[in-house]
Design a protein around this nucleic acid. Structure first.
Lengths: 334, 334
DNA sequence: TTGAAAGCGGTACCAT
DNA sequence: ATGGTACCGCTTTCAA
């Protein structure tokens, strides 16, 4: 492997000049820069990342703590990961992948070893045990999610409460007066995953404000789970005509179950889905849906990490939900 | 941040002694080791990864090149990623995540910068443009997949051909004489993804050897795509009674479509699915399926990378498929 | 505009 | 069993 010394020799300059030519931190004459770049190309020179991080105290690597566990909807997780990785590359950073199951220890290990410049942390719980650790670290953090207390840390997420309200509002606009939320599994609520709670809160608040009935039931992501949840809705609020599904895996199942029980979408009942557009486009009936802007949020997270590295203060940004009308919502049947 | 010098001072020894106490590359008296570890704990010392990699020429980081956006079934990809990350940690390595869309350049960048010790590469195409690059690198590579020529590189994958044969054999055992493969989308075949071809080959060979009819049709992963593929089967081989689905997203759709056209599973037709067990357990009918042992393969990949780093020669390992009988296969109807 | 050289924090060789 | 120290390859101050 060619080193900076080799490049310097080949270009007939000092190593410092090569270094500066690369970093642009001091003016270099065009001619010199020319020769240096020629030498670099010829030798196939690449700076040694370790040496660089040792001398400069920055790694150009971002740690991404992701939940590779799969009680979450995997395609969306993956979209976040891809978005962060892509954005990181656009900022000339690489991504070190941390699995959430390593917990706080993993963060400390990576930070202590000076392996990364900053952290992006996904799947944040209301009182996440990683938060106190992250606050102590020398490296800045961006959370994807919104914990109870975010002081000192940047946060970015979909505005889940607004999302819940938006879903209800859409059904209200269509005249529905009894709506149900088929939500995430009980485990998601218990774990303190903030998005589950915030969405349900938005759902319930909007229903109350609109003066309609709203029933929220959690749902296990399986055929039987959906059947159980739907049965609950049919029992506790039998005249429900508007459904909000915040549980990707059961979307298809719900549609089949509704049809099987003689309810046509959108003639008899309306459905608003929350999830990626593919999910909404997949079924036979194209679903009116609210997307999860994972790409945008992931990119923002990296942007905000860059801001923190540039010395700016932590901030919280909530992305507004956007509803796409398709074919699954109609006026309430008389 | 405490450095090794601080630790040495605190323990009243030389830095080399601290270094050796940590690496275990030379004997240290129990008493000394004791004092050193006490000092380390007290100071919260962590070796600087960059300094270490500079001096030792190894990073304890593994690069994982993963397809983060594609027509592949995301949950399985994720399972591979999780398995590799977990196994890497078990080997005291971290994972640097590379997205396949960076292509060969990404590999060269990371290798050139001495950022990793080895590569694990997913989603390998028959004549993958990354292969020649990987062969040139100083760092060893393990491919998850099986390209046309694997010389110089280690490979690990499910034995897809055996998987295709196993699926057919199971249907043959139940007396079926006309079977159909609902396969991956055309794009997967065109991209030269090796598993798509190998599976179909196994399917076709086994059908031929058993003297039964076998029809393979690709399938777009959507409601309409499945409808089109099923229509093709119904036209070209109307008496088909055995289905093999090698296309996770349409499994549920296929089941509904069969029912909608009056075919009961397993009474009228049998179905063998290829994919994770959750997929097989999800639908109303529990599906007989052949799993994709992503955890095992991911762990093996890391194991094999460790082998290469230890100086052993590249090898190819194909994992045997395992079929789990559930409720979707019955004897052919008379 | 450019060069020389002192670190950065470890590892591992050479001594004792 | 332990210590001293020359690197590893780059960044950045200090000088010119």
């Amino acid at each position: 492997m060619a080193t900076i010394v080799d490049v310097a020799k080949a270009a007939g300059v000092s190593v410092s000049t090569v270094s500066y030519a690369l970093s642009g931190r001091r003016p270099i004459s065009a001619a010199t820069r020319e020769r240096i770049h020629a030498a670099i190309d010829e030798l196939g020179y690449r700076p040694h990342a370790g040496a660089r991080s040792l001398a400069s105290r920055q790694t150009r690597v971002l740690a991404l703590a992701a939940p590779l566990r799969s009680d979450l909807y995997v395609p969306v997780i993956m979209q976040f990961v891809a978005a962060v990785a892509t954005a990181a590359r656009a900022h000339d950073h690489d991504v070190l992948l941390l699995m959430n199951d390593e917990g706080p220890a993993g963060l400390e290990r990576v930070a202590g070893g000076s392996m990364v410049d900053a952290f992006v942390v996904m799947d944040v719980a209301t009182n996440d045990p990683r938060l106190p650790v992250l606050r102590q670290l020398r490296e800045p953090t961006v959370l994807i999610g919104l914990p109870a207390r975010a002081d000192g840390l940047s946060c970015v997420d979909l505005d889940w409460e607004a999302t819940g309200r938006l879903a209800v509002q859409h059904l209200v606009d269509h005249g529905h007066t009894a709506v149900a939320l088929v939500g995430p599994p009980p485990a998601a609520y218990e774990r303190g995953t903030t998005y589950a709670h915030r969405f349900r809160t938005g759902f319930e608040v909007a229903a109350a404000e609109a003066g309609i009935r709203g029933l929220a039931v959690p749902c296990e992501p399986s055929h039987d789970g959906l059947a159980a949840s739907l049965a609950r809705v049919d029992t506790e609020q039998p005249d429900t005509t508007g459904f909000v599904v915040h549980n990707e895996p059961v979307v298809g199942t719900l549609l089949h179950a509704l049809k099987a029980t003689g309810r046509e979408v959108p003639h008899d009942v309306s459905v608003v889905a929350v999830g990626p557009h593919e999910l909404a486009e997949g079924p036979a009936i194209r679903l009116t849906s609210i997307g999860i802007p994972a790409d945008e949020i992931g990119a923002l997270a990296v942007e905000m990490a860059a801001d923190l590295l540039a010395g700016r203060s932590p901030q919280t940004r909530l992305v507004a939900p956007r509803l796409v009308e398709r074919d699954s919502c109609g006026p309430m049947r008389a």
